[in-house]
């Protein structure tokens, strides 16, 4: 078979176009499915499990929060402080600059569509701990133009701070307000604090959020907030029917934020 140079270039060019178009169409119509299968190579060297299919991961991390236990303000403060310290989360006075990984808000703000004026006063006033929901179908991952935010096979939605270009499309897409942008040098908000040398500080111009303490899970530890949470936060493997988190979800009534959006959060609120 003979092929001159011109013909070769023509075919090579066409296959490149169709290759791109084919993948693009697939990704647009079935978002997440390709990216899940691609994650086996490339993204997260620290991943140890989850080489199975996207449908049945061996590990699917999830958290259940026993809401009423957080009447205890000391417990709330301990959890928030643990998160801040372990991840060197900066603190800024101006709300515009705030970086939030784990924070609290009232029921009516956490569940804006479900609040009603006749509800139980305790539930209305108790602080709800809010964090990244590590959704099964994360809109932030779908919109990221560089795969700087990606879903690991164990369900954790992770961030690559060195790849993020700071376009903030993920912040527009997240329906839970769980993402923060470094509007200024985050080290300005860490002054006078003892830093955790095990976890990097970030730079200005990138987005960050709760990472479910992925670096601690890799060492066999629980997330920092869960560890100090005195049993009020239950963390475990959703794929294991006997795990603590599955058992408590069977027993207690639980809520997920904005279920109508189909994002399938893996943070559950026990009420």
């Amino acid at each position: 078979m003979s092929m001159d140079r011109r013909e070769f270039i023509k075919i090579a060019g066409l296959s490149a176009i169709f290759g791109l178009g084919g993948k693009g169409t697939y990704e647009l119509l079935k978002p997440g499915q390709l990216e899940a299968s691609e994650q086996g190579h490339g993204h997260s060297p620290e991943q140890e499990q989850g080489h199975g299919t996207a449908e049945k991961p061996a590990v699917r991390w999830a958290m259940a929060i026993d809401v009423r236990r957080f009447r205890d303000q000391d417990l709330v403060n301990r959890c928030l402080a643990a998160c801040r310290e372990v991840h060197n989360v900066p603190v800024f006075d101006n709300p515009k600059d705030e970086i939030k990984w784990l924070w609290t808000d009232k029921y009516e703000h956490a569940f804006p569509d479900s609040a009603n004026e006749y509800m139980d006063d305790e539930l209305r006033e108790v602080p709800f701990l809010l964090l990244c929901n590590h959704c099964d179908k994360p809109p932030c991952v779908r919109v990221c133009p560089t795969k700087a935010t990606f879903k690991r096979p164990d369900g954790i939605v992770a961030m690559d701070y060195h790849r993020c270009i700071g376009c903030r499309f993920c912040m527009a897409a997240c329906p839970y307000g769980s993402r923060s942008f470094n509007w200024r040098d985050p080290r300005d908000g860490l002054k006078g604090r003892t830093l955790n040398p095990e976890f990097p500080t970030r730079m200005r111009g990138v987005v960050e959020k709760c990472n479910f303490c992925v670096e601690r899970l890799a060492q066999g530890l629980k997330p920092a907030c869960v560890e100090v949470g005195d049993g009020a936060m239950i963390f475990g493997n959703l794929s294991d029917p006997e795990s603590d988190v599955r058992q408590i979800l069977r027993k207690r009534t639980s809520l997920r934020r904005k279920p109508e959006l189909g994002t399938k959060p893996s943070v559950f609120y026990l009420v």
Binding site: L20, K23, G24, E27, L28, P31, G32, L34, E35, R142, V143, C144, P145, T146, K147, R163, C167, F169
Partner: peptide, 8 residues
Amino acid sequence: HPTPNSIL
């Protein structure tokens, strides 16, 4: 890192 699922 072309990402066809991103509209951007």
